[in-house]
Structure formats: C-alpha cells, structure tokens
Simulated scan of single mutants.
Amino acid sequence: MSLHFFSAAFRPADEAERQQAVRGIAPIAADDPALHAVLEEARQVLRTPIAMLTLTDGDVQRIAGILGMPPVELPRSIAFCSHTIAMPDGMLSVPDLLLDPRFAANPIVCGGPHVRHYTGAAVRLGAFPVGALCGVDMRPHGPASFRQRAELRRLAEAAGRLLDGTPAQD
C-alpha cells in the first residue's frame, strides 16, 4: 500500500487582517460585463478553457466569477489559489499538476474533474491577497511565459479594482 499526500498552502502571517479585507468585499453580479471581460481576457491570455476569480474566505474558496464551468465552492485546503496567495510574488504556474508533488494527490487532480494545469495571480485589496485570478485546464500546458505572467498580473490588478468597487479599466 502506498500513501499519497498533497500539500495544503500555508496561511499568511496576517491572516486575520486579510480575512477582514475579504469579508468587506461586496458580491459582484455573475453577469457583470467588466468581470466577464477580465475573465475572458484571462482565458485568452492563458489559453485555458476556464478562468476564475476566486476569494479565499476562511476555510473555503469562493468563486466571485467564472467562465468555462459552473461555479463550485472548494475547501481551502485543496484550492490551488490558496497556494497562489501564499507565494511571495503572488504568482503560481504549474504546467502539469499531476507531475508536481504538491498537487499530484489533490482530489481535484487525481479525481474528478482531473485538473492538470493551473496558472494564477494574486488579487489584492490594498496590501492583502484576497484571492486569485486564474486559468485552469484538464490538459497540461507548458510553463506560463513572461508575457502571460505580465498580462495576468495586469488583469489581477483590474480584478482587484472590481472587488474594491472602482472601474476595472486601465
């Protein structure tokens, strides 16, 4: 018998303050045109069929917006975006989740829906990473290019302005 583990993300040192910022976010309508535009551009930039704006809220990951699949709430412990907000540079790109020891045994990688690729950038409100703008695919990709990373960071900033209630336009 072999045991397989996946790595849950560490919580930031300022988790209590970060969580206060998350709780202050007003919901965005699923059909908000600015949100749709940010998600569609993220999908195009990353060449993924799915793009999401997530909020890491306590022990869950909530979906603030999604294109390419129905919204689903995940436990924070298995959410890739939890790793993204914990990264020092606020960026995580995993070409093939099945080949990465942190994620190979994750239930959404080794079980349904069999996610294989993830690239995400932290979305910030002020100093706090409250969630992520990400693209996922059921097939592996190459690593995210410098251009893709830069564009995703720009879009994550626009998503942060949306969450803050300011216009998302550059």
Rank of each mutant, 00 (worst) to 15 (best):
Q61S: 01
V22Q: 08
E15K: 12
Q44G: 13
D170I: 02
T54A: 01
R149H: 06
A9M: 07
L152C: 07
P167Y: 11
A122N: 13
P167R: 05
V38Y: 06
G126L: 09
A29M: 00
A104L: 10
G160K: 10
F103A: 08
R154K: 00
A104E: 14
E15V: 14
A86L: 03
V136F: 05
A16S: 09
S7Q: 14
R153G: 04
R43D: 05
R43M: 05
P88C: 01
M69N: 08
A13T: 09
L39W: 03
D57H: 06
D100T: 04
A168G: 03
A9D: 08
L67Y: 00
F146N: 01
R153Y: 12
Q44N: 14
H114Y: 15
A8V: 05
R43T: 06
C110A: 11
A34I: 05
Q148K: 01
V123S: 13
V72D: 07
L163F: 06
P95N: 06
G112H: 10
G126D: 08
E40W: 07
G126C: 14
L35C: 05
D100M: 09
N106Q: 13
H4F: 13
H117I: 00
L99Q: 14
P75T: 10
Q148H: 03
S93N: 12
A156I: 00
Q20K: 07
V38N: 04
A132N: 06
P27Y: 15
G24P: 10
P107R: 02
Q44D: 08
L74H: 07
L39S: 08
F6H: 10
R62D: 00
T166R: 11
T84F: 04
A34C: 10
R139W: 12
F146G: 02
T84K: 05
G160W: 13
H83E: 13
T84G: 09
I50R: 04
A64S: 00
T48Q: 05
C134R: 09
G112V: 04
V123R: 14
R43Q: 12
P101R: 06
M138G: 03
L53R: 03
H117T: 05
A9H: 07
R11L: 15
L53I: 02
P88Q: 10
T84H: 07
R147H: 11
P49L: 04
I108D: 13
V130K: 07
S145H: 11
A13C: 13
L35G: 08
P107E: 03
P113L: 05
Y118N: 13
D57M: 03
A64T: 03
G68I: 02
M52E: 12
R147W: 02
